[in-house]
Design a protein around this nucleic acid. Sequence first.
DNA 1: GGAACAATGTGACAAAAGTCATAGACCAGG
DNA 2: CCTGGTCTATGACTTTTGTCACATTGTTCC
Lengths: 211, 211
Amino acid sequence: MSATEIREHFPTFEKELIDDIEAKSEIRSFTAGEQLMRTGQYFKSTMLIVEGLVKVYREDDQGNEFFMYYLQPGQACALSMVCAVKQETSQIMAKAVKDTEVISIPLAYMDEWMGKYKSWYHFVLETYRARFEELLVTIDHIAFRAMDERLEFYLKKHVQTLGSKIIPISHQEIADELNSSREVISRLLKKMEQLGKVKLQRNSIEVIHLS
Amino acid sequence: MSATEIREHFPTFEKELIDDIEAKSEIRSFTAGEQLMRTGQYFKSTMLIVEGLVKVYREDDQGNEFFMYYLQPGQACALSMVCAVKQETSQIMAKAVKDTEVISIPLAYMDEWMGKYKSWYHFVLETYRARFEELLVTIDHIAFRAMDERLEFYLKKHVQTLGSKIIPISHQEIADELNSSREVISRLLKKMEQLGKVKLQRNSIEVIHLS
DNA sequence: GGAACAATGTGACAAAAGTCATAGACCAGG
DNA sequence: CCTGGTCTATGACTTTTGTCACATTGTTCC
């Protein structure tokens, strides 16, 4: 990936940093559906998302999953960064939702660049802050909200992230991601449809008006 | 606070860093029950816990609270650190559970010391990692576990943190912290008592044997 | 067009959690 | 000792969520 392309996606990076990234990182591609990270996997690099969309979620020992947030182009995975200090294993799952391209940076440079490039330091700190906030929002929703509200929030987030009011997803998939049951999701969606908030189609949901 | 005392509580800090902390920070004391941080409050400093115990929790707009984790001596608040980049407001509540003493460090030094002292850099990164992990564990418990399991985990955590099998707490307080109802907590505790896991007294719970 | 399969809707029922009401026990202060 | 207040136990009932079972609908492939 050329310096121009890196600058395009990460406009706050200083020139010398971009040159370093160009020289020392590699580009990796993942097709939609492919895993980027698995729970228990050792980190060797940190990833900056360039194209595509990555879903980050938790998985329990029964294989149940719980969606946390998306990583979009211009963002990075905070957990791979924060684990540079110790040889730590991943505590999250990350999967490409769309065909995805990432800049893979060996963890050794994390340390080095933090001291060397102000723009890298700020990018990393901002990444931590943003991910902390995502985690806190996630906690809020499961701690303080009922499933119907959580479902609305989930749909809203999808509209924002995907940039489309039509979400191609089945009720079962939503149930999986919210760690609920398909019937509950179907019923809540049906209720929302009756309230004019959404329009249901097979394998997709059109969001009409959510508050 | 003298250099000796700082070194005692934060043994990984290099000498020059300790001298800087000694020169530029201030010691603040909070009595049990006092707030250290409120949602919406601006950060002016970051805090290292020296003595006591601090409870970190989320509060929703109805005043419902949700316990997340404790900060013990030798630990720091990751969120105050991560907000050094921007003028951000607190998204958490923090309250002294015991009489507490903290080293309060102006946020300006966060930036400076990250580049200047390796031991500070590592301490900060480790703080982020540890707090990320706490948040992920919290999410796991509310996403994947029922209230009885969450209650057991909550009690276990208290035993570990307080270093005593006797937890001085009322059912209502537990209900508040887990954002549940007092009756549910009472019933679950009664069940646990019948299983020989705990012994209930008024305003306190003795943990006998939790897995 | 028919078969197979997956997605969705829905009824019945169960379990978990929450609310309301009330009674009994315990503790502190006068 | 008595009173007031708080903590705890518990029953009745409601709501939310989940499970099971089955039917209907839609899509794809032969």
